[in-house]
């Protein structure tokens, strides 16, 4: 069995969790202030995920950039690949927050969506 301290980063409270796990699954957690920790810590051990936020240039908007994010957390090892994919993307036409900028990025099943407006 393995054990260690992992910071839960779901919210800024940043609880320092005592976790125990084996090869297959999370066995126990201690010192979490809420239920959200279990899923996060389990992912963090077996398949760490992150939300990627960045910007892409606009075509016509008043603002030179719109901000974008992955609509869901994506596997951490893909973060830099997603940045490379987005490096050549330009948002077409007028953009509103929530618009899909890239569908199913790198086959993750997750969309890149705008988080601000181009105008």
């Amino acid at each position: 069995m393995n054990e260690g301290n992992i910071v839960c980063t779901v919210c800024p409270t940043s609880c320092l969790i005592d976790a125990k796990w084996d090869e297959k699954e999370l066995i126990s957690i201690d010192r979490a202030q809420c239920k959200l920790a279990w899923g996060y810590i389990s992912d963090e051990i077996f398949d760490p995920k992150r939300v990627v936020t960045t910007t892409v240039p606009t075509e016509t908007g008043k603002n030179p950039l719109v901000s974008v994010k992955t609509a869901e957390p994506v596997p951490k090892h893909l973060v830099l690949d997603i940045m490379d994919t987005l490096a050549v993307v330009q948002a077409k036409g007028l953009v509103n927050a929530g618009d899909v900028i890239v569908a199913d990025v790198l086959g993750t099943g997750v969309n890149i969506i705008a988080t601000s407006n181009s105008d």
Binding site: V7, T9, C11, P12, S14, L16, R50, K76, V79
Partner: peptide, 12 residues
């Protein structure tokens, strides 16, 4: 800064 940002922004 917050522990969360140490992990997500530096350690990562």
């Amino acid at each position: 800064g917050l522990a969360r940002n140490i992990v997500q922004c530096l350690e990562d």
